[in-house]
Design a protein around this nucleic acid. Structure first.
Lengths: 260, 260
DNA sequence: CGGTTATTTGAAATACGTCAATTCAAGTGG
DNA sequence: CCACTTGAATTGACGTATTTCAAATAACCG
């Protein structure tokens, strides 16, 4: 379990304005994801590209959104962040991760005070998207607005899966379930490997396990030839075994088959 | 753990149109709750009262909303329901409960297919609120729309609490945490007792525990003189001990004090 | 009252957490 | 290039939490 009180000192948010040169390229992950969620017009793409000027850089442990404060809509350009809460006695629960191209602080829940903190897990770059989004979506209700909406829907679905994972899966199943979700999310579900830059402590706090137990469960998955995590990458050796172990609700496409 | 496959047979949704006579009185719980969430105009109140004609009755176990189908916005007039999902092997996770006066199937998530089923836990009465809501909120953006929004925010907050409960609390803490949440939700937080019409099996499926273990944990809470559940009522003997055991995020009002 | 469902309890097995130590990997400064 | 540090991954031993199985009440309902 992470002692976050100790970590918050050296890792305070330290924004750094980036140059404008490599702006367009940096926004690629965001455009890719938004494009998958909805059809974007050339104007939408332009607007997103312009966000690059607002890039800010943070180091691991930096607090991107404080619990109890009104949240500001942001996109994550690169790196991973966690949405989490820490109890008084130090226990931590991670609710969700924010991957490159994903956003946080959006949605109707954005009004009032944030119910969860968002913390950089790796080095991270963000762009503010508050006022921008309002302007764009008001001008043209399609594209971007729809993409954000779709993103919120996915987040909602993930949270339900996460609750099942936390409440009704064993440690072994939790790990498999989590890795499978991350594979699907990475957009590299076809390949055998994808980036998973999380420490075991972080994963443990997401899965509601102790670090030691997670470690053992991962060893079992490795020994069974199912999946292996090494050097920030997950290597899926046996996709079907992974899917079978992760009692996951059938993915999109498998739904129709299961109905029969 | 509930074997819901077996239960679904005799408990199919069986709507029954209710008379119009006692209409106004029946909507009291709904009006009370909506009124707490936002300021309602006399016109709003009128509109809600008119919903009474659409009342439908269900028996315990009836499916109010099917997973995978497009949801229909509804209010629960009386009785309790659970929002849940059941795994292929019978394991069940309850995400949330719907109490009298609360709604489900609202929000942006309502588009597309429902990610969770809603099932009557007790005998239940509902009213459809789909088209009605659209009409009212479009005509006047205040009151009702605001109340629904506030309800969604509360639901969101509850889910985060639920995740912490599932992932990071012990069985003993889970039970206390849950009972405290239900007390606050009942609107009877001042009194020492409030209705809690759930079987231990249902609570266990919400808390991610086995029925047997929940039973033991409840016995401990009873023996410690903290709280007792009997005959569908929860009796809080020692409120401060209950709050201390439930590692719950401080309630509204305690927040300011904790900030100092 | 009889049949069903919920609660309760005991005993045994397992999953999981904690404590403590060791190994491993990646810097960092000499 | 080599100590030397630091943080993460790994392992063993042990204690506790939780589940499972099985059975015995107890409460409910027609």
């Amino acid at each position: 379990m992470a002692d976050l009180a100790a970590a918050s000192g050296p890792a305070l948010a330290r924004p750094v304005r980036a140059g404008v040169g490599e702006a367009a390229a940096a926004m690629a992950p965001l455009l890719r994801r938004l494009g998958r969620l909805a059809q974007l017009t050339p104007l939408d793409v332009e607007a997103v590209r312009d966000l690059a000027v607002l890039r800010r850089r943070f180091r691991p442990g930096a607090v991107l959104q404080t619990e109890g404060r009104p949240p500001a809509a942001q996109f994550l350009i690169c790196g991973w962040a966690s949405s989490q809460r820490v109890l008084r006695d130090g226990r931590r629960q991670i609710f969700d991760f924010v991957l490159p191209g994903e956003g946080f602080g959006f949605g109707p829940l954005a009004e009032g005070r944030a119910r969860h903190a968002v913390v950089a897990v790796t080095a991270v770059e963000t762009v503010e998207a508050g006022g921008f989004l309002e302007a764009v979506s008001r001008a043209r209700p399609g594209g971007l607005r729809q993409a954000i909406q779709a993103g919120l829907l996915e987040e909602e679905a993930r949270r339900l899966d996460h609750m099942i994972r936390l409440g009704r899966l064993t440690g072994y199943e939790k790990a498999a379930h989590f890795i499978l979700e991350m594979q699907r999310r990475s957009g590299l579900a076809e390949g055998r490997s994808f980036p998973l830059p999380l420490t075991q402590e972080t994963m443990a706090d997401a899965l509601g396990l102790s670090v030691v137990h997670l470690n053992r469960v991962l060893r079992q998955l490795r020994a069974a030839g199912v999946v292996e995590i090494r050097g920030g990458m997950a290597l899926v050796h046996d996709p079907s075994a992974l899917a079978a172990t992760a009692v996951l609700a059938p993915g999109p496409g498998e739904v129709a088959a299961a109905a029969r």
